[in-house]
C-alpha cells in the first residue's frame, strides 16, 4: 500500500481519525507521518487517544540544543568525525541519519541476524505491531469494546520508555 501523501513510499503508519462523525483511515509513510504530526491541527486520532499518546507530537527542539543524553555528542561533533558517540546517538540524531542511511544503504530497516538475547524483545515488538493493527481495525469497525481490550494488551506488552533505542523510530 502506498503513502497517500507522497504516493511514493510504502505506507507503514495507519492513522484512524473521526472527521465530521465519520471514521476515516489515513495511510502514510514514516516520513510523511512525521511531517504531518507536526502540523496536524485536525481532530485527534482515536488510536492515539486510546494509547494515551495525546495529540500531535511536540515540535522538535532547535538543532543547537540537541545533545545525546547519554554520551553528550552534539550534531556538530558527528558532522566533524562522521562517527557517532554511542548507540543512543542513533535515536538522538535520527532525523539527520534517516536520509543518510537511505542514500548509503537504500534501506531503513535491518532484516539480518539478531542477537539471541534480543530474540524475546524483537518478538515482542512484532507482536505489539500486530496488536496495534488489530486495534486500528477494531476502531475502524467501531468495535470499541474490542479496541479497549487490545489497548490493555498493548499497554501490558510495552516496556517502560527509555528501555533502548529499538523502541524509538530511528
Amino acid at each position: 500500500m502506498h503513502c497517500e501523501v507522497c504516493q511514493e513510499h510504502e505506507a507503514t503508519v495507519h492513522l484512524t481519525q473521526i472527521v465530521d462523525g465519520h471514521v476515516r483511515k489515513i495511510n502514510l509513510c514514516e516520513a510523511c507521518a512525521a511531517k504531518s504530526g507536526l502540523d496536524m491541527k485536525g481532530p485527534l486520532s482515536i488510536t492515539d487517544i486510546l494509547l494515551g499518546l495525546g495529540g500531535a507530537k511536540p515540535a522538535e527542539k532547535p538543532e543547537r540544543e540537541r545533545v545525546c543524553p547519554r554520551c553528550h555528542m552534539r550534531p556538530s561533533d558527528f558532522k566533524k568525525t562522521g562517527r557517532l558517540g554511542c548507540m543512543d546517538c542513533y535515536a538522538t540524531f535520527a532525523a539527520e541519519l534517516a536520509p543518510m542511511l537511505q542514500s548509503m544503504h537504500h534501506s531503513s530497516q535491518h532484516v539480518g541476524g539478531i542477537p539471541a538475547h534480543e530474540g524475546a524483545r524483537v518478538q515482542l515488538t512484532a507482536e505489539i505491531a500486530a496488536l496495534q493493527q488489530a486495534l486500528e481495525k477494531a476502531v475502524a469497525a467501531e468495535n470499541f469494546e474490542e479496541a479497549a481490550r487490545l489497548r490493555d494488551r498493548i499497554a501490558a506488552g510495552r516496556r517502560p520508555p527509555g528501555a533502548g533505542p529499538a523502541q524509538e523510530p530511528a
Binding site: G82, R83, L84, M87, Y90, L97, M100, L101, M104, H105, S107, S108, Q109, H110, G112, G113, I114, P115, H117, E118, R121, V122, T125, G164, P165, A166, P169, A170
Partner: peptide
C-alpha cells in the same frame, strides 16, 4: 557480552556505513 542492537537498524556501529549487519 550484550551487543548494541536495535530492531530497526540492527547492529549499531560507530559509523553509519556499517550499521545493520
Amino acid at each position: 557480552v550484550p551487543y548494541a542492537f536495535s530492531v530497526k537498524l540492527g547492529y549499531l556501529t560507530a559509523c553509519p556505513t556499517n550499521v545493520g549487519t
